[in-house]
Simulated scan of single mutants.
Amino acid sequence: MNPLAQLPLEKARSVRVILTDIDDTITSEGMLTASAYAALENLQCAGFLVIPVTGRPAGWCDHIARMWPVDAIVGENGAFYFRYDRERKKMHQHFWAKPEELKGNRAKLDAIEKDVLSSVPGSALASDQAYRVADLAIDFCEDVPALPESEVDRIVSIFERHGAQAKVSSIHVNGWFGDYNKLSMAKTLLAEVFGLSWEQAKECVIYAGDSPNDEPMFEAFPLSVGVANIHAFEHRLKHKPAYIAKGHSGDGFAELAELLLSARQR
């Protein structure tokens, strides 16, 4: 991981699209700071496409697509994308699974929930679970005392034993049924909505993240950035971001925004 300040000017100038995680990448200690929100707004006002790619639930993503300065959002680790057309006042939604699949998967996830909560003391259902449509989120440090890493791994193993995918974020273990992740839905969104082929995307997209569930994005995009707090998860990553910011969380994201805006002005 090279310091973000070493990102070559010509590469910074090639960026047209910012894909970014939210929790502990844009937010800091669970809060959306003024500087991080201003960074989002400044990027969009400068003509960049700004697209959060998050593990957060559909209910949150509807709000973010409508009210944040973003052009679309991928949610629940790739289960869907939402795009709000402000001119027509219409929300466009695309889901990976059909409604009947979602219903069947929910029954299987309910069984996993019972297994995890009875097997891993101290774990809890994520407080935002009621707003989810496609996955199960188990809290290991957001609203509960932080669990040791061995217990986080135990939660992952329970998901996998039931045949589900599982990814670790900075606060939750998210699990789901379906052959998708953040990357697959981001590719779909970029192609269907913004007309970017995968070859084009690799040349003009930069991704920012902070945790193991961002690993498919770090691997796929030549331009990828970790905020400084990714050091806590470095030992869990086979594929690390190409660059790393000095700042933690939202400060690191603001640092990236400032670099991109400065490169465009120069």
Rank of each mutant, 00 (worst) to 15 (best):
G104P: 14
N105M: 06
R106Q: 14
R106P: 09
L109A: 07
D110W: 05
D110I: 04
D110P: 09
I112V: 01
I112M: 05
I112R: 01
E113W: 10
K114S: 11
D115G: 10
L117A: 00
S118F: 03
S119F: 04
S119Q: 05
G122M: 00
G122H: 03
G122Q: 00
S123H: 08
S123R: 10
S123L: 07
S123F: 01
L125G: 10
L125D: 10
A126F: 09
A126L: 09
D128S: 14
A130M: 12
Y131F: 15
Y131V: 13
R132I: 12
V133Q: 09
A134W: 08
D135P: 07
D135F: 02
L136Q: 12
I138N: 11
D139I: 12
F140Q: 10
C141S: 13
E142K: 15
V144M: 03
V144L: 05
P145F: 07
A146F: 03
A146W: 00
L147T: 01
S150R: 02
V152H: 03
R154N: 00
I155P: 04
I155K: 07
I155R: 02
V156W: 03
S157I: 04
S157G: 09
I158R: 11
I158S: 12
F159T: 14
E160I: 15
H162S: 15
G163V: 08
G163I: 08
A164H: 06
Q165T: 15
A166W: 11
K167G: 14
S169Q: 06
I171R: 11
H172A: 03
F177M: 00
F177S: 01
G178H: 02
G178V: 04
D179S: 00
D179E: 01
D179F: 03
N181L: 05
K182D: 06
L183I: 08
M185A: 00
M185N: 08
A186R: 10
K187H: 10
K187F: 07
L189F: 05
A191S: 13
G195H: 07
L196E: 02
E199I: 12
E199Q: 14
Q200R: 11
K202H: 04
K202F: 00
E203C: 05
E203G: 02
C204M: 07
C204W: 03
I206K: 01
I206M: 01
I206P: 02
A208R: 02
G209F: 08
G209M: 01
P212S: 13
P212M: 12
N213G: 13
N213P: 13
D214K: 13
